[in-house]
Structures are given as structure tokens and as C-alpha cells.
């Protein structure tokens, strides 16, 4: 799984979450459901937070696009001195996935469980993968 695929996967996770929650909220509203998913504050908050994170990522990707296409590599073949071109995806993409995992984890396992190491480790792995992919892409080392 390369950087492009990982970023796409994380953003798709965000879009999938927004679609599922949006459908559930609007289904309850349209049908006057007695059990309304929007009565759960955390789920409603996850819905709006995911939309915000994906929106922020969209804004960042648009503004960074120009810098990416303007990136030049010197004739002697040296690599760029800054990894700024790769700053486009990770923060918001990780933010989306982290938020979704966190709320989902709390809903199933609760807040006081000792199983919390699972979530923090998983998020740590995602962050580590991102950093490694950026470094390897920057240095031109095959994945």
C-alpha cells in the first residue's frame, strides 16, 4: 500500500462515515423515527467533525496542489531540500481516521476500559506508516 493508496483509503473512510451517518440522520428525520440516531450527541458530533476534517483536507489539497506541480528537481539529481510538497495529506487524513476510530471504540468498549492500548497503538501505526511513506517517497527509495 503506497502513499497515494493509503491517503485515498483514509479519505474514503471519512466519506463512507459521512454517507452512513448522513443517511441515518436524514432517514430518521424523513420518517419521524422514534429512535433517532441524532439523539446520540457523540455520533452527531462525529458526523460534523468528519465533514469538517474532510473539508479541511479538501482545502489543503487545493492550496498545496500548486506547490506540488511547481516542485523542481535540480539537474544534478539531488532531492528537494524540503518535504513541503508531501505535507498535503497526512494531518487531515489521519485526523478523520483517528476521530472515527476513537468514537467507534468508545461506543463499543466504553471510556474506562484497559483495552485503550489497542486504539492508541493502531493510530500510532497509521502515523508511523505515513511518516515512513513520506520519507521513502522523498528520498526515492522504493516502497
Amino acid at each position: 500500500m503506497g502513499q497515494i493508496q493509503l491517503t485515498t483509503a483514509l479519505i474514503m473512510i471519512g466519506l463512507f462515515t459521512i454517507a452512513i451517518l448522513g443517511f441515518a440522520v436524514n432517514f430518521a428525520s424523513d420518517n419521524d423515527s422514534v429512535i433517532d440516531i441524532s439523539d446520540d450527541a457523540q455520533i452527531l458530533s462525529l458526523y460534523s467533525d468528519s465533514a469538517t476534517e474532510v473539508g479541511d483536507w479538501n482545502d489543503n489539497s487545493t492550496s498545496q496542489y500548486q506547490s506540488i506541480i511547481e516542485t523542481t528537481i535540480a539537474p544534478d539529481g539531488s532531492t528537494p531540500q524540503s518535504a513541503g510538497s508531501f505535507a498535503i495529506t497526512p494531518i487531515n487524513a489521519i485526523g478523520v481516521a483517528k476521530n472515527i476510530m476513537q468514537v467507534g471504540y468508545i461506543k463499543i468498549f466504553g471510556t474506562g476500559s484497559g483495552f485503550g492500548i489497542f486504539l492508541s497503538t493502531l493510530i500510532g501505526v497509521i502515523g508511523f506508516m505515513f511518516a515512513l511513506f513520506i520519507y521513502k517517497t522523498w528520498r526515492g527509495i522504493p516502497d
Binding site: 500500500m1 483509503a9 483514509l10 474514503m12 473512510i13 463512507f16 462515515t17 452512513i20 451517518l21 441515518a24 429512535i35 440516531i37 446520540d40 455520533i43 481516521a97 472515527i100 476510530m101 468514537v103 467507534g104 461506543k107 463499543i108
Partner: peptide, 17 residues
């Protein structure tokens, strides 16, 4: 209902990764 929604989202996470 919330657990079903969370299971659905986690299935999506598994699927896309």
C-alpha cells in the same frame, strides 16, 4: 442502533484499508 452504525463504519475502515 449506535452499535450497528459503528460496526458498519468499522467494516468500512477494514474494507478501505
Amino acid at each position: 442502533l449506535v452499535i450497528v452504525v459503528v460496526v458498519t463504519i468499522f467494516s468500512g475502515v477494514w474494507f478501505f484499508l
